[in-house]
Design a protein around this nucleic acid. Structure first.
Lengths: 326, 326
DNA sequence: CTGAAAGCGCTTACAG
DNA sequence: CTGAAAGCGCTTACAG
């Protein structure tokens, strides 16, 4: 930096200011400094910058799992927006564990990150305290509708699930099962939407809710479908909390010789890759992860610049993808 | 840190050394310092540490794409190993572009990362120079068999593809097509393995190689399968460079009323999620990404500690998963 | 709008 | 085995 300043014939302080685009520097000086920096191939040291300003250019992104396409899509969208803006993306995987999340949060906080992007609202009190005290901006992903002071971009998981259940009822289905694995907060919200809709229609039967604490997968969906259809052959629709489960249902139905949607309808959630290619193609809910990631990154960018955000709760909505399986 | 030193009644330098586990500190002092640090809840500042030592605790992981499960598996395995060892995982996405990779490398280098993990060997001369000059340890992922001074963990993509092609020939297939998208270096190596095997058998026909520069996907596989079977109805086996393409082939075959494997065999590569659940289940090559990620992280950990690595080229091999589709 | 001073919180040589 | 000095490369108040 001092070399740059020397070449531009200004003090290092001015050079620093010019390079950071701080306002209040004569424009000719800015130009001189920038040219000098380019000539010398000057690259600022992030460590020194972080130490002096107690703020880094790192954004920590906390997601539950890397092996779930939903979160990878978020990560991808966030990275795409943050990278060109000069921020680096640090990943943190919580494994759906709030305590693990708190530890990650604490360890990242030591790094004075410029911002946090956190999936969901399942923080421990300790995590909340860490976030509040630190004053590091934070945007939550995938859900909406919490306390008014938090920032979030997402959708109502309850409403999305309710809409899909409603669609199944409109297709004249009376015995609608719910299949879920990896029971995180969002899955439980979807279960709620399903339940409320069926209760309103007077068709709710608690025996038709199937939960597994194991990880969601195609194989798990196939397995759950087989056992549920054996126990309840009268089921005429299966609503899965995730597309991989629903894909498994479709494959299992085919193996069992059950006609979809004639004998049993199958619906998924999240619109994952390949769902449109299934036989029959899978009806599902598109959750616009890329939009969530991008808008959340935009919001965080504003917050990190100290700008205000007019709308702290952004609802990206959802989209029913009505296809062959219902 | 100085508070800790004061409480432990030693100098800050000694405290620093004790906390970092540097050898040459009396063990009673180490204990005193550690207790003091715990008592005060001391957390070292990574920025200050990085500035003073010109080395951070950040490992940059360069992968081509986040939307490809193969690389996410690598990332997951690497993260799982690095996190508990005190290193943070920074992601960099190259989009299969060596120039973009070089820019990322340059920008990460300014951060003085503790190490690099880079997918493949497609570096530009500029990237190579950056790596050599920096002295930052680096381990390459997924491929093997380059210059002896580089470190890598992977498998021979050529041999893996050759083995699968051989399997198809053993199943009496004579007209074996190759279907590929997203033509990166590893896909081309697989093509080579396929080609050599067929040439050796005297069955090679260049018209049966189908390439698309677009992204690999289930839909793309289905589309390519349909058009290739129309053009060449005599094809009796299709070897896809990736499982998503192969899954698409299976679905397309089913739509077209073609019996798999009776009329046409289908084989994939990478053993992705859901392949075992297809109808029929997909024969494929398991590429052990988790093992690659874990072993590479271990190797990098050794290098970052300044330890020597006895075997710089680790071949994790591959595994033919012979299932219903061939 | 520009600059001189001080300091961010550590660690690396250099002594002893 | 321990410590006093110096400095890593920036930026934040404070003056002018």
């Amino acid at each position: 930096l001092s070399d740059v300043a020397q070449l531009a014939q200004v003090s290092p302080i001015t050079a620093s200011r010019a390079l950071r685009g701080e306002r209040g520097v004569a424009s000719d000086l800015v130009q001189r400094v920038q040219r000098a920096a380019e000539q010398l191939g000057y690259v600022p040291d992030p460590a020194a910058r972080a130490l002096a300003s107690s703020r880094s250019n790192v954004v920590a992104v906390l997601i539950p799992l890397l092996t779930n396409q939903v979160f990878v899509d978020l990560l991808e969208a966030v990275y795409r927006r943050l990278q060109p803006a000069g921020y680096q993306t640090l990943i943190g995987v919580t494994h759906y564990d709030s305590l693990e999340e708190e530890q990650l949060l604490a360890s990242y906080m030591a790094q004075r990150p410029a911002g946090f992007l956190i999936t969901g609202f399942e923080q421990t009190p300790g995590s909340r305290l860490l976030l509040e005290r630190s004053n590091v901006p934070c945007v939550h992903l995938m859900e909406i509708g919490q306390a008014s002071d938090v920032h979030c971009v997402g959708l109502s998981q309850i409403e999305a699930a309710r809409a899909m259940t409603m669609h199944l009822l409109e297709r004249q289905r009376k015995r609608v099962a719910f299949v879920a694995a990896q029971m995180d907060a969002r899955v439980l919200q979807r279960a709620q939407g399903y339940r409320r809709c069926l209760q309103d229609a007077g068709l709710y039967d608690a025996r038709l809710e199937f939960f597994s604490a194991q990880r969601s997968s195609v194989a798990m969906g196939a397995q759950m479908f087989e056992s549920l259809m054996q126990q309840h052959p009268d089921v005429d629709a299966v609503f899965c909390c995730n597309d991989d489960l629903a894909q498994g249902c479709l494959l299992a139905a085919s193996r069992m010789g059950l006609k979809v949607p004639k004998q049993v309808a199958v619906a998924g959630f999240n619109n994952l890759a390949g769902s449109d290619q299934m036989l029959p193609s899978l009806t599902t809910v598109n959750t616009r992860r890329f939009e969530v990631g991008e808008l959340a990154a935009n919001m965080l960018l504003r917050l990190m610049r100290g700008e205000s955000v007019s709308n702290r709760h952004v609802d990206v909505g959802f989209e029913l993808m009505l296809r062959g399986s219902t």
